[in-house]
Amino acid sequence: MNQETEINLEQQGDIAIFDVKGDVTALSGPFFTKAYQTANDQGACKILMKFTEDAYINSGGIAIIIQILAQTKRNNQQICITGLSNHFQKIFNMVGITKFARIYNTVEDALRDLS
């Protein structure tokens, strides 16, 4: 039914970038956990979660993202999100994700904020 999640981890200065492709669902948990664990092991204190415009995130995927945001908060890490369609920006705002992570339209804006 869904397109499997793929997360490529990139490092830009002191910022860990999660390049997220595919649909984000309850089954995406291990991919996010692994990416977050690797970023942590590399000492990341700033994270950018980058989605593609056609990404689909369902209720389970939202729960996974909130889990990661809760961990970044506990570990005093800064996190930004980019690449979301207007549809998902609205949903993220409504479920309160924007209280924990700022959302930007472009990667450049997000990187500028994190730098």
Partner: peptide, 20 residues
């Protein structure tokens, strides 16, 4: 099965938030 998996995630979150 998918819904139960999702429920598990929500319970984990609830459990963690109640411990912090």
């Amino acid at each position: 099965k998918e819904t139960r998996q999702e429920l598990k995630i929500h319970f984990k979150m609830l459990f963690k938030s109640s411990r912090h």
